[in-house]
Design a binder for these strands. Structure first.
Length: 788
DNA sequence: AAATTCTAACTTTTT
DNA sequence: GTTAGAATTT
């Protein structure tokens, strides 16, 4: 460990006195002054407030390249953290390009998690307590394994599974770890949550993880933090190693990540965080916007650099987005500007229902293909994205595009390594590599079906516990002592035999690719999918083939498994041009020339639940999400909403999103929907002619006034009675109840009905909104006034 | 043990 | 309208 740095070095140098690189480097050319400052402020804490599309990644990667070129640090002394593997990969390629591939890759450029793994592997034995600690070879549990493990514990502790499903407990535990709250210090309310078992269960869970020599995702960070806190010598070692720390998407850090960073940055204080408080959209999974707002307090003397020149969008798009986000309180404040051509205003259009919305967007896209929008230049399908709030909205577009034969791709479906067949295959590999992996054993012992059900598994577990061995060994004992009968026994014998032979094969140095194929074939796993007649079976077989192919790039199974537990994505090189459909969350960091933003209705977007559970905080996060959506567009953004939408099989009507009212009029053009449904707002819009002026008048008259909303509501009324509650439901009330009644539910307690759709009630409980079948609630002592 | 029917719920998602 | 998980039947 080298200690060459001068501890008395000033932490920040004023901008004016800053030394500029002796010789102008070619990679610095073309940067604007702010970007240049962001690259050249070398020492001390720096907060780069980079708005959407301001070249933040460029500034960050150039900064890294610059540090390396100036010899301020060797690649191994730079710590660069991102949130996704994709971002890390992109950064790596960009740095390599800037440096002309002359410098070896940066070992410490990666996600919080991948870097934590590297650190933890070196100090694993310091994690845990006497007699029970981690080994450097620990495995990383994914959510699936985590939930299975919790289920076992819940059963062992005799906790009511119905009241506290493992899934929910896993979520809670995740939350605790995100906030870096250890077993000793659970928050009072939540620790008691599980019938007072919360703390006990948590401790049991952590113990179980240690005995399995495993950690979950949350542990990776939390263990690092506790390690640093408990062992100052270890911390110092890492602090000294990382001379410069760079963090991307700082607004998305949670408490654990924040502590992790702060600990590591304390020594050199050369930390550069890049983020945009207006793009913080992950509050619901523990991200703290506060971290970015507090940066200057945490690192006194920090230099704050704002990147405000936007290179992505037209002034019209930028204007609309800026106007919208201005409604949020407590922003750090940035004024984005651009010197691009004005471009087209953001287009706004309403439709009768979600099907009309999908139809219209499909037609628009086809029109682009026909070259009807010459002003935009060429627009290919790859240039178009549809960004939705909730994934169920995607269906309407998939259906429509399928029927008109428009190629599309859905981004953000289950990832390759999360698919069932891949996880099964991986479990086989895991068991081959480490016989102690009991979770892998459980997963595959009866996959494909071997006639080994719960009973058989219990027998195996019993045998294993009796002899103090792992499940595989336990199974061997069961086979030897013939504790099972018939077919199950024979199958189990084959299974144990196969794994045993595979262990031998590993020792004999059989090629891992060949071994993998052999295991999958001989276990009958491949056959299982070959004989499966479900429509997705062939796809699964393809995936398996691809998995085996991916193995080739690694030296052995072990190496592959290590890699996979952290890198959970895969690029499939699609060749044909396709329209992208994804959620707004999935779109962060991406850009498209043409963007469609459907479903801007109150309740859907802003999402009702987000507002109920988080109040203004939730609404502001939704607004940031809207901001992210609009700013993805380079040349044309189109916002649409539908008066009626089918949700959970029932038609519901809603008002246009309140965000629509917040868009500055001067950047919005209201379009007329085709195929009017006789009257309603459509009739009003039909009056609009083609000229700007008329559109303006119409806009002022129509979309900005309560009258427009009334008209919209009246149109909906013709289809039946409508209850105007936050989420309105269009149907006759269930006979026994009316809106406003108080009801009693076995699990959620007392609540108030705020919506009725046939037999489904929307009830406001203390715990939040729930849709519940009328049969499951009792009328409760009423008399309370209805708030609506 | 496997196939079948029934039930209750339903944001956003990375590692 | 769909889906995962539980309950029930075969």
């Amino acid at each position: 460990m080298d200690l060459t740095d001068d501890p008395d070095r000033p932490t920040a140098v004023p901008l004016s006195q800053r030394a500029v690189a002796a010789r102008p480097a070619p990679y610095l050319e073309g940067l604007n002054p702010a970007q240049r400052a962001a690259v050249e402020v070398l020492d001390g804490p720096v907060l780069m407030l980079a708005g959407a599309g301001t070249g933040k990644t460029r500034a960050l990667t150039t900064r890294i390249a610059h540090l390396l070129m100036l010899g301020r640090a060797r690649p191994g002394q730079l710590l660069a953290v991102t949130f996704t593997n994709k971002a890390a990969r992109e950064m790596k390629t960009r740095i390599a390009r800037l440096l002309g591939d002359t410098v070896e890759g940066m070992p410490w450029l990666g996600t919080f998690h991948s870097i934590s793994v590297k650190i933890l592997r070196r100090h694993a034995e310091m994690i845990g307590r006497d007699g029970l600690h981690l080994k450097p070879s620990f495995t990383i549990l994914d959510t699936d394994d985590q939930i299975r493990l919790l289920k076992q514990l819940i059963q062992a502790e005799n906790i009511d599974e119905k009241r506290w499903p493992a899934r929910q407990l896993a979520h809670l535990i995740d939350g605790w770890k995100n906030r870096c709250i250890g077993p000793g210090s659970l928050p009072r309310g939540e620790g008691e949550a599980f019938d007072g078992h919360g703390g006990k269960l948590y401790a049991a869970y952590q113990d179980r993880l240690l005995t399995l020599n495993a950690v979950d995702f949350g542990d990776l960070l939390m263990h690092c933090v506790t390690l640093f806190q408990a062992h100052p010598d270890v911390l110092r070692q890492w602090q000294e190693r990382f001379r410069y720390i760079l963090v991307d998407e700082y607004q998305d850090t949670n408490v654990a990540q924040y502590m992790w960073l702060r600990l590591l940055a304390q020594a050199h204080r050369n930390i550069c965080c890049v983020g945009d408080d207006d793009q913080s959209i992950y509050g619901w999974r523990g991200a703290e916007v506060g971290n970015i707002l507090r940066f200057e307090k945490d690192f006194p003397g920090a230099e704050v650099i704002r990147l405000e020149q936007n290179y992505r969008s037209t002034p019209q798009i930028l204007g609309a987005a800026s106007g919208l986000i201005a409604a949020n309180q407590g922003r750090l404040g940035k004024t984005l500007w651009t010197d691009a051509e004005p471009g087209e205003p953001v287009r706004l259009i309403g439709h009768w229902d979600s099907e009309a919305e999908a139809r219209w967007i499909g037609e628009e896209i086809e029109a682009f293909q026909g070259g009807h929008r010459a002003a935009l230049g060429r627009v290919g399908l790859d240039d178009i994205a549809i960004l939705v709030r909730a994934s169920h909205q995607m269906r309407a577009f998939e259906d429509r595009f399928m029927t008109i034969g428009l190629p599309y791709r859905v981004i953000g479906g289950p990832r390759f390594y999360e698919r069932q067949e891949i996880r099964d295959a991986m479990a086989y590999f895991r068991l081959v590599v480490s016989p102690d992996d009991d979770l892998a054993f459980e997963r595959i012992v009866n996959t494909p079906k071997r006639g080994l059900g719960d009973k058989a598994l219990q027998t195996i577990q019993h045998a294993a516990r009796q002899n103090g061995v792992n499940l595989l060994e336990g199974a061997r004992i069961v086979v030897e002592e013939k504790q099972l009968g018939g077919k199950g026994l024979a199958n189990l014998r084959d299974f144990v035999g196969l794994i045993g032979r595979s262990h031998m094969a590993v020792r004999d140095g059989v090629g891992h690719v060949e071994l993998a194929e052999r295991v999958l074939d001989e276990s009958g796993y491949t056959t299982m999918w070959q004989t499966d007649k479900s429509p997705d079976a062939p796809g699964r077989l393809d995936n398996l083939k691809e998995l085996v192919k991916a193995l080739e790039e690694f030296e052995n199974l072990q190496g592959f498994l290590e890699h996979v537990s952290l890198v959970m994505d895969r690029d499939d090189g699609e060749q044909t041009e396709q329209v992208s459909i994804m959620t707004l969350h999935g779109a962060k960091g991406l850009e498209f020339p043409v963007v469609f933003l459907p479903g801007w209705e109150d309740g859907l977007f802003p999402n009702q639940r987000a507002m109920d559970e988080q109040g203004t905080k939730g609404l502001e996060e939704e607004r940031r999400l809207a901001y992210v959506g609009i700013t993805r567009a380079e040349r044309l953004a189109t916002i649409t909403f539908a008066g009626n939408r089918r949700l959970y099989g029932q038609w519901q009507s809603a008002l246009p999103s309140r965000f629509i009212d917040e868009l500055p009029e001067e950047h919005v053009e209201v379009l007329t929907p085709p195929g009017l449904y006789g009257g309603g707002y459509g009739a009003a819009m039909a009056m609009a002619g083609g000229t700007r002026m008329e559109e303006r008048v119409q806009k002022a008259d129509v979309y900005n006034s309560p009258g427009w909303k009334r008209m919209q509501a009246r149109a909906a009324d013709r289809r039946g009675p409508v209850h105007r509650t936050p989420v309105t439901i269009d149907a006759a009330p269930a006979s026994r109840f009316t809106v406003g009644d108080r009801v009693l539910h076995a699990k959620f307690g007392e609540g108030q009905i705020i919506g009725i759709a046939e037999e489904t009630l929307t009830v406001q409980f203390e715990a939040g909104f729930k849709n519940i079948k009328a049969a499951y609630v009792q009328p409760a002592g009423g008399g309370d006034d209805v708030p609506f």
